[in-house]
Amino acid sequence: GVCPLGPVSLTKEQLYQQAMEEAAWHHMPHPSDSERIRQYLPRNPCPTPPYHHQMPPPHSDTVEFYQRLSTETLFFIFYYLEGTKAQYLAAKALKKQSWRFHTKYMMWFQRHEEPKTITDEFEQGTYIYFDYEKWGQRKKEGFTFEYRYLEDRDLQ
């Protein structure tokens, strides 16, 4: 049978352990218990039908995949998934698409045209930027992008 050495009845201690296990089972650890707090998109597990995707597509954690996403999606990831690998990949994809992050305004800028002025300290011209409060792209003419606010860490 499945019990080649014969059954052995559980000791008092083992029965106690089993009871404690049973009690703990009613409040098993939640996936978010061992993660950093997700301010905007907390985990919210719920039963999903089997014919829906239960898992994201393979290789969706590569920069190549992120480069196929729309810029709005990338901005969403950047602002709403703070401090995650997704945020890092989104930033990388945005940089590859010539978006530059402004550390004072905390917004992404893209040159709309060649800057009218370029010095060692700044450049000036017309830029497209993404306004996270109005949630949309805006154009700014005659904007001075000071290089000291340019986030220029080399994302590996």
Binding site: V2, C3, L5, P7, V8, L10, T11, Q14, Q18, E21, E22, A24, W25
Partner: peptide, 11 residues
């Protein structure tokens, strides 16, 4: 001890 007896509770 629990596996040996093959009487496994859900937890």
């Amino acid at each position: 001890p629990f596996l040996r007896n093959v009487e496994l509770t859900k937890p």
